[in-house]
Design a protein around this nucleic acid. Sequence first.
DNA 1: TATATATTATGATATATATCATAAGTGATA
DNA 2: TATCACTTATGATATATATCATAATATATA
Lengths: 231, 231
Amino acid sequence: MELSVKVNDCKECIYRSWAFKNLSDDELKLINSRKKEKFFRKGELVCLEGDTVTSFLYLQTGLVKLYKTESNNREHIISIAKPMDFIGLLSIFSNTVHVYSITAIEDSIVCLVDLEVIKNLIKTNGVFAIDFFEKISKVADSVIKTRVDINTRQLRGRIAYILLHFSKHIYNSSKFNLPISRKEVAELIDMSTENVIRVLSEFRKDKIIQIEGKNIEILDIKRLEKIYDLG
Amino acid sequence: MELSVKVNDCKECIYRSWAFKNLSDDELKLINSRKKEKFFRKGELVCLEGDTVTSFLYLQTGLVKLYKTESNNREHIISIAKPMDFIGLLSIFSNTVHVYSITAIEDSIVCLVDLEVIKNLIKTNGVFAIDFFEKISKVADSVIKTRVDINTRQLRGRIAYILLHFSKHIYNSSKFNLPISRKEVAELIDMSTENVIRVLSEFRKDKIIQIEGKNIEILDIKRLEKIYDLG
DNA sequence: TATATATTATGATATATATCATAAGTGATA
DNA sequence: TATCACTTATGATATATATCATAATATATA
């Protein structure tokens, strides 16, 4: 179910990415006329793998997961995207269809801009083109880096990674509410659900973290960082 | 040691990527005047992680590996790039320094184009900007896809992947000379060297492949594909 | 050519991780 | 409220994978 949201004017939009800083007022107006802000309730699908890419997707608020559904119906999460991320990743250039499915894992607002408008601006405003490529490249580069970081570590290192990631890069707090289930954590960092639970319990017993359901508090960040560093 | 190579004029260059198809003769001339083709012998370093990115790097012939050196001095190969790939990946937009080191794993010719020239062309020729980003996005997307493909499979599936990859996408032949050592295969698909050797031997015993040192021939591609599909 | 070094190879063993089994807790829903 | 499905939890066991040990080749280097 898509609810209507307060409509932001691009020019005044507080969620606007720095990648749009070199657009003129007229260009922002153009985007404004061809964009739509959509609200997605936690759990709602934003787009499905295989859908035709017609819009540039920008996450204003909330959190979404990017994932693929394997042939055995298991999901494999590629990335958790945060506000200001270009959540369609490189598909807008590399493909005519979305490579990943996207689902909101928290109530989220996604701004959809007609892809043709973005491509035309890239063609006509060279400085914007460079800015835009810089931003999208950074997002994609960080996806690659994360995949490698995770897969070169073993279980404890992966759990440490995900805890530090949520704490430092998403919630900026040592205390946070994990937005995904242990099963989804498992799908994100390539391990079994049982082992996710087990390692979390281990960290709890070692007083590295405190757990109350989905509420997690990092008690000993130094040790967590050490576990992450050692792999 | 960099040897001089026959200098190709960009306009006539048989190695040119389709991403450059919408450049005028003058624009190609500009690139031509600011490019350098360098020969790298097998094993030679093309660039080092951390080096400032000053050129757009394009692989004309040969093969190179993109890798990171871990703190424990172990190498982790991110990707094997083939002719026509943009081997600097997204670093040219996302970073001022190279994120990966690059080394030739076969005698290779890399064309280095002054990055400023490329960026200026992106700014002034919008159609080229789109073409260029389509290409670079495809290369980067395929890196992500490959990482996921590898890490969602277990050992036999990974070896099957790498054999099929070399056969289908790099050499277009069921018979080929593996350009990297078993150790490097291990670094590429995240497994131990011993297990790479073991699984290859297993495949040999099962008459799926034939091995003579680095010379490999796929005898039963159907079974190899099945092993890959099953993970 | 001789020597050192790296690669390929295989078996034995240790370790990491997944799977299976079971149960308590939680949340959705009829 | 009662029922059902899902999540969290933990222990036991099976499996996958890495590591260790050793040796035979192959390759590089003095």
